[in-house]
């Protein structure tokens, strides 16, 4: 067993893991953060998407030991108290989920996507950027709508703050 420690949603955490333990497994089983879902387990579906050191990654394709010392953000770390993150709020407002299984990964992918496109997003870009996240309900239309709305809202926020 190897002791790993990382910052998860702003809190220092640590745990003993086998070297072969996947980061998704560590988050879910050791830390109890079950918001990160494991869908396909073949690194295609994106339900396990989280942020590591500020970038979206698939936590089922990374070992917990590889993430030792890093900063992790999961779906549980997005909201501020009772206030949903703008992307979460947009998914709620625009009905960007059906069964909800892919939603944590979609939202983590969306927040990263919005970060990387500070000048705004187009529908085509959003659809292209979502290629690593699969929705089995095929509810893409409202997911795209929600991401575009969130990007717009967050862009406005930045403009006001500036």
């Amino acid at each position: 067993m190897t002791e790993v420690s990382m910052s998860v949603n702003g809190r220092k955490t640590s745990g003993a893991v086998e070297d072969r333990t996947l980061l998704s497994h560590f988050l879910r089983e050791t830390l109890g953060l079950t918001g990160t879902h494991v869908g396909c387990d073949t690194s295609q579906c994106g339900a396990c998407t989280i942020h590591m050191d500020g970038r979206s990654v698939k936590s089922c394709s990374i070992l917990a030991v590889q993430a030792d010392g890093s900063e992790i953000l999961t779906i549980e770390g997005l909201a501020e108290g009772d206030t949903l993150h703008p992307v979460q709020a947009a998914f709620k407002e625009h009905h960007g989920l059906q069964c909800g299984f892919c939603t944590p990964g979609m939202i983590m992918a969306a927040t990263d996507m919005i970060r990387r496109h500070p000048d705004g997003l187009t529908e085509a870009t959003v659809r292209e950027e979502l290629e690593g996240n699969i929705c089995r309900c095929t509810g893409y239309h409202n997911i795209v709508k929600a991401i575009l709305a969130a990007a717009e809202a967050m862009g406005d926020g930045r403009a006001r703050a500036a």
Binding site: G46, S56, K58, S61, A109, D112, M113, R116, E131
Partner: peptide, 9 residues
């Protein structure tokens, strides 16, 4: 290559 998350790693 892959998708945005794969390209980050």
């Amino acid at each position: 290559i892959g998708d945005p998350h794969v390209r980050h790693m």
